[in-house]
Design a protein around this nucleic acid. Structure first.
Lengths: 230, 230
DNA sequence: GTCTATAAGAAGATAGAC
DNA sequence: GTCTATCTTCTTATAGAC
């Protein structure tokens, strides 16, 4: 049972009901409730993982009766899958495309800043992903093995080209991608730890700017590159 | 309810029973069973978090009946706390001490390599810690606010001294600690993702050596330092 | 479409036999 | 010390009233 196959199932369930084209937009409530449930489920699953999350808690967060949640998604797995549909779509849309003809410093800086920005805007998605991986990626294994593996191979190839052309220091491209992933996601996944250590109640925009500046400076210099003045 | 107070409670429960000094060592079975349970619980909690873990599963992993587990620890929280007793003890024992009189390059290299080595030797402990933080650190909040905060302040102070003496580039010391934490722990916490992306069945020693070499090279260069020939 | 009631099973925890 | 039996509560999921 792959993410892809389940994704299709959930899309079918999502398809608008035909022959009911009324003026007040059919499925308006449906849409709104689905969104509430998705938002609530993201919080619950991000915090407690698949097994630790309960439908009751999701329902309470969504301010809906539990059976209403099960009416829309029929079971716990479907809710979980639906979340990854959304997250992977966002991931693929935003994800930095680096090309051989780009300037290495500028491309890597954009990559780092985009990832930090994602940690800022979608911390729950980041934590949900982290939970799924820590738990052994039971749902995303196929995706990692195929799409994500291909993505890394492609990006690593571009970085290797830059190295071969002497445009940056000789560093392992795949390890570099891991470094950028880990260091940027950290701000979302370990938010509580960072806030406690820095003695703050919550993050502000400038904290993320500062983090992005720091990571850009250190990683680019670490790759033998000078930060661009973007 | 702090970690410290519960830690004391678990130590009391651990105290040897008096007036039973027999030749075959009293509590031998007890000790062995406790260890089995701790090892099993580490796996279960690391994979599923506090709420997702079940006593039944811990018992099965330990190959003991469920009530035997509850006999030794009386409830789920006690098992969880006992894990952090062990982990924090290890953490404090191994944790890299950097001092102002040290060479920055050598000290940071040791820090990075020690952390990678910990990811290799104790991946479950790393994942357990990650789970606890992602879930909002309900058990470790006090520890983060006090001990860990102090530790970071101390280490950051030393790094700042090096910077002020012009012995390394001007980088935010606290962010540097976060960077080293995140990038090194990543090899334990996101093990599955790395293995899938690199198309491997499992890690080998040389993968960790390679990762440590990479991180040392990039981060040291990123801090304006040359790697030492250690 | 929505929600109450409830089945069926699993969870944490305890009592007490051995 | 060990383990079976059991209590209570909670969990997923379904049936069916409205």
């Amino acid at each position: 049972m792959t993410l892809q196959s389940e994704a299709k199932l959930s899309q079918i369930a999502e398809a608008p009901v035909k022959g009911r084209t009324r003026r007040y937009r059919p499925g308006r409530i449906r849409e709104r409730n689905r969104e509430r449930i998705i938002a609530a489920a993201e919080q619950e699953f991000a915090q407690h993982g698949f097994r630790g999350a309960t439908i009751q808690n999701i329902a309470e967060r969504a301010e809906l009766p539990k059976s209403n949640v099960l009416y829309y998604f029929s079971n716990k797995k479907r809710i979980y899958y639906a979340l990854f549909d959304d997250i992977m779509a966002r991931w693929n849309a935003v994800f930095s495309e680096i090309r051989p003809e780009d300037d290495p410093a500028q491309a890597l800086e954009t990559f780092i800043r985009t990832k930090v920005e994602m940690s800022r805007r979608f911390p729950l998605a980041s934590r949900l992903f982290a939970q799924e991986i820590i738990q052994g990626a039971p749902f995303l294994k196929d995706h990692l093995r195929t799409s994500m593996r291909e993505w890394v191979r492609g990006r690593a190839g571009v970085i290797q080209q830059w190295i071969d052309e002497g445009r940056m220091a000789q560093v392992d491209p795949v390890q570099l991608i891991f470094l950028i992933w880990s260091s940027t996601q950290h701000y979302a996944d370990f938010q509580v730890q960072i806030l406690m250590v820095e003695n703050k109640a919550e993050y502000e925009q400038r904290d993320f700017d500062h983090a992005a500046d720091f990571l850009t400076a250190v990683i680019l210099r670490g790759c033998g590159l000078e930060p661009t003045k973007q």
